[in-house]
């Protein structure tokens, strides 16, 4: 296994999926997995199945909605789309993430200056 790949941080997958759906509109699970793969440029190691667990969790919170549609290979597939509440949540989570990333970044810089 490629040692350079990092595990997905707990909870960050939810944020990534929300952002993906926000940016690209309704997608099915496969599409979401592909998009995250593309964006992460193979840095992240992801069991694609966990996307579905995350999707269920987001659905339960009412942040995304699901509807049946037809996929590229003419199969029936579930398409997920972000809801209004999800948009708000995404905003909050993104802010939150930036703040934490900032803090961690600063802390790491401190380390480097010494």
């Amino acid at each position: 296994m490629d040692t350079k790949k990092s595990e997905v941080l707990q909870g960050t997958l939810d944020l990534m999926i929300l952002k993906t759906l926000h940016a690209l509109g309704p997608l099915h699970g496969f599409g979401i997995a592909r998009r995250i793969e593309q964006v992460s440029r193979d840095v992240l190691q992801l069991n694609e199945g966990t996307v579905y667990t995350s999707l269920l969790r987001l659905q339960q919170q009412g942040w995304i909605a699901a509807a049946w549609g037809t996929s590229e290979n003419n199969r029936k597939a579930k398409f997920y789309s972000i809801t209004k509440r999800g948009e708000k949540q995404l905003h909050v989570e993104a802010e939150n993430w930036k703040r934490i990333a900032d803090v961690i970044g600063r802390v790491l810089k401190l380390e480097a200056e010494r």
């Binding site: 099915h28 699970g29 496969f30 997995a33 694609e48 199945g49 579905y52 996929s71 590229e72 290979n73 199969r75 029936k76 597939a77 579930k78």
Partner: peptide, 16 residues
């Protein structure tokens, strides 16, 4: 059952 169907679809697309 729905989930199984979804998984099968995903695996199929990935394999293709």
């Amino acid at each position: 059952g729905e989930f199984d169907y979804e998984v099968q679809g995903h695996l199929q697309l990935l394999a293709e």
